[in-house]
């Protein structure tokens, strides 16, 4: 159990690193948010789950914390992306199509 826990923490740290690298390499806000959200969710899930497995008393709490992250992380990144778009931050030149058209109807 403890070994699996430490392996999970290691995997989590690796995905945190990829999240940071993604934020560094991506060309614009929206792609950076993609890297930031995706890589760090798996990173935090496996770090927290790993801590729960290393110390079994902590496991129920760890699961609740994971549920809260799964609820709040995507909402946060959506709101950041929407705010950036409505503020008029230009997406990268590679962007192929824009069906949002400057903010839609509102």
């Amino acid at each position: 159990m403890i070994t699996i826990g430490y392996i999970l923490i290691g995997i989590g740290a690796f995905f945190y690193f990829l999240g940071g690298l993604g934020i560094f390499r991506m060309p614009d806000v929206y792609n950076r948010l993609q890297a930031g959200t995706k890589a760090t969710t798996l990173g935090s899930f496996s770090v927290i789950l790993g801590v729960g497995l290393v110390n079994l008393e902590f496991l129920p709490k760890a699961l609740i914390i994971i549920a809260f992250i799964a609820l709040t992380n995507p909402v946060g990144s959506s709101v950041l992306a929407r705010a950036a778009y409505l503020k008029g931050i230009k997406p990268t030149d590679k962007t192929k199509v824009d069906e949002y058209k400057g903010g839609g109807n509102k």
């Binding site: 993604g22 993609q34 890297a35 890589a39 997406p91 962007t95």
Partner: peptide
């Protein structure tokens, strides 16, 4: 799906040519 998402983005980030083809869709 979440695991797949993570590996997908991880591969994109680690790829030296940074394969992106982004867009906003409805």
């Amino acid at each position: 799906q979440m695991l797949k998402a993570n590996f997908d983005v991880a591969v994109r980030v680690l790829n030296p040519s940074l394969p992106l083809n982004p867009g906003f869709v409805k």
